[in-house]
Design a protein around this nucleic acid. Sequence first.
DNA 1: ATATCGTACAACCAAATGGTTGTAGATCAG
DNA 2: CTGATCTACAACCATTTGGTTGTACGATAT
Lengths: 110, 110
Amino acid sequence: MVVDQLSEAEADRLFQAFADATRRDIVRRVTVGEYSVSGLAALYAMSFAAVQKHVAVLERASLVTKEKRGREQIVRGNHEGLQKARRLLDEYEAIWRQRVERIADILAEA
Amino acid sequence: MVVDQLSEAEADRLFQAFADATRRDIVRRVTVGEYSVSGLAALYAMSFAAVQKHVAVLERASLVTKEKRGREQIVRGNHEGLQKARRLLDEYEAIWRQRVERIADILAEA
DNA sequence: ATATCGTACAACCAAATGGTTGTAGATCAG
DNA sequence: CTGATCTACAACCATTTGGTTGTACGATAT
């Protein structure tokens, strides 16, 4: 029963997207409030185009969505990507738990 | 009460390390069993040096440890890095929960 | 109507990434 | 001792990444 087998490419995109401090900050901001792309750009010491690229990376990773409103593009947090990332890490955690159990079993046999 | 404020650089290293399928596979393998660097290298269609670099990336991110045993270097999973990554994602999840609560409050006022 | 604003996108650049081969030092086996 | 094995690391290369500036275009305000 594979609920949602994340493709390797999807996992790549997710973690890659998280691997940048500016992008992590954007995710936090747009989860709490609403920001246009230029609204976000005003927050960082880099060009509008650079921020635009960061948003695009986050969008491809399903960590934010964009919605056109007038001439602005509103960026919002997308729970989907975060959930996928967490589920991924949970799998690694599960492997650790299994390992611990296995060792406990071996010790119990002694 | 900041328990373990992850530096941005640390977070970068962690997620960057996870952002590669080969490295994620290495993490899984060495969590379950013991592998030397060359033992790992035998598993992938790339050079020993390439695998060695992947292991180095994982080590810098605290996702694996290396221990010298004779002429071999044994690679083992390191729970520390994984825990840090999970804690990080948990913070983002917490922001989401706060957002949901805030919206619920607003609705309750109406 | 015109100027301004917000966005998209192309072209470019430097640095980082993910791979290679080659060399050299330890350690182990015969 | 000699040869094979495991590791480390340097040098190199192609591609990607993270930034820049410049151009174009739809939406808004005056």
